[in-house]
Amino acid sequence: MRRFKRVLLGVVFAVSAVAGTAGWASGNAQQPVTGPPPGAAAWSADRSLGRALPDPARAEPERVAAFFAGLAPAERRLLLERHPLIVGNLDGVPVALRYEANARAVRGTPYERLARDGRRILAFDPRGRGQVAEVYGDLATARRVAVVVPGSDTDAGSFDRPGKGHRVVAGMAKALRDAAVRTTGPAPGHGPGHRADPPGAPGTATAVIAWTGYTTPVGVGIDAATGDLAEAGAPRLARFTRGLTAVGAPRPSLFCHSYGSVVCGLAAADAHASDIVVFGAPGMRADSVADLGTDARVWAARNADDWIARVPNVELFGLGHGEDPASGGFGARRVPAREAAGHDGYFAPGTDSLRAFAAIARGELR
């Protein structure tokens, strides 16, 4: 009874906190984008190759990969030219083909900047506020892959917003990529004899993906307090990661910020991840690491002045996201974050959290 009262008080506090921000009154509830992008009907009706094409809504990434592996170059190009949005977003399609398809798809849209300067866009969906995934590094040759999963207020327009640096998902991915390929000396938790790989060594073949592949909450409102958007986004993340392994990439490590930690928690059992790192997390919709149903190593970081610590770790009546992943009882491996500042400072250059993240991305911390 005492625990129930504590949980109920926590929910009341959470409701009051959210209502106090006018989040619920601001009309910012989001409709999650699900299913394949526009053009799926034309793709499904296409018989230009003399046979049915993989169902973009249901075909497993492994089947998609096998289908494209059996196509001649001219057949691949035909599909790219006729259906760039489907080819660019279909998990299991060869990486280079997706880059080219998405470069075509973004032209003439508000997101045309994504086609400039040889950017490697692995996914692009113009629906809603827009979704995008961008690769930093060479995914085709990478020995290690990391995927950064953002929290609220992230979409195709804001994910690489100028002037925000490491505080937006593209900046986080760039900072992690830079740190992962740099000689940084001893990795956190290792002795002076353990050094990071020098540039050019096998361990530095790390690619990092900024993945804005789900509809994120806007502000601190009802969407951020419930799991609805995370429940819609988790299958998209799981499918995306399975698409990476289907084309020969290694199992990725997931770096999940804020509400992105809820998405990663719900996707954990199906995401084919080697590591799941949450930071600034309100919860993972699980009581412990064991409840996640994954064999991935699970890590958690939270600095002393992150405001997320004031959010009650409860889950009741659909509100809240459960146990604090940074608490001792959850069972996650702790990531140092003494030098990080605030809710979005974990990727700041020179911080202990970024050094640890880079070591995890390289597979040096276990």
Results as ranks from 00 to 15, higher is better:
residue 134 E to G: 05
residue 349 P to N: 09
residue 262 V to A: 05
residue 110 P to H: 09
residue 274 S to H: 10
residue 64 V to R: 01
residue 341 A to K: 14
residue 27 G to Q: 12
residue 253 S to K: 05
residue 264 C to S: 02
residue 358 A to W: 01
residue 124 F to C: 05
residue 239 R to S: 14
residue 290 A to S: 13
residue 140 A to G: 11
residue 131 Q to F: 04
residue 13 F to H: 13
residue 27 G to P: 09
residue 366 R to P: 07
residue 230 A to R: 07
residue 251 R to H: 15
residue 243 G to V: 05
residue 282 P to E: 01
residue 183 T to H: 15
residue 309 A to Y: 04
residue 110 P to V: 12
residue 325 P to K: 02
residue 218 V to N: 13
residue 91 D to P: 02
residue 123 A to D: 11
residue 142 A to G: 07
residue 125 D to K: 05
residue 8 L to D: 13
residue 20 G to D: 10
residue 350 G to W: 08
residue 132 V to K: 03
residue 338 R to H: 14
residue 356 A to P: 02
residue 129 R to L: 15
residue 54 P to W: 02
residue 116 R to M: 13
residue 150 P to R: 01
residue 54 P to T: 08
residue 133 A to P: 04
residue 156 A to W: 03
residue 211 W to T: 00
residue 348 A to V: 11
residue 240 F to L: 05
residue 90 L to C: 00
residue 200 G to S: 12
residue 247 V to N: 00
residue 85 L to C: 06
residue 70 G to C: 08
residue 168 V to N: 13
residue 254 L to I: 12
residue 126 P to R: 05
residue 159 F to I: 05
residue 126 P to E: 08
residue 366 R to D: 15
residue 301 A to Y: 04
residue 248 G to F: 09
residue 89 N to M: 11
residue 131 Q to W: 03
residue 200 G to P: 06
residue 83 H to T: 06
residue 236 R to G: 01
residue 192 P to G: 08
residue 331 G to P: 09
residue 171 G to Q: 01
residue 114 L to C: 01
residue 289 V to L: 09
residue 56 P to C: 04
residue 26 S to R: 15
residue 70 G to F: 07
residue 3 R to M: 12
residue 225 A to M: 15
residue 242 R to W: 06
residue 256 C to R: 00
residue 20 G to I: 11
residue 82 R to H: 14
residue 19 A to K: 10
residue 52 A to P: 04
residue 76 R to I: 05
residue 145 V to W: 06
residue 189 G to M: 02
residue 50 G to F: 08
residue 364 E to C: 10
residue 225 A to I: 13
residue 56 P to K: 01
residue 103 A to K: 15
residue 203 G to W: 00
residue 188 P to I: 11
residue 108 G to C: 10
residue 244 L to M: 14
residue 304 A to Q: 12
residue 89 N to F: 09
residue 268 A to E: 02
residue 307 W to H: 12
residue 290 A to P: 02
residue 140 A to Q: 15
residue 183 T to I: 11
residue 345 G to N: 01
residue 37 P to Q: 08
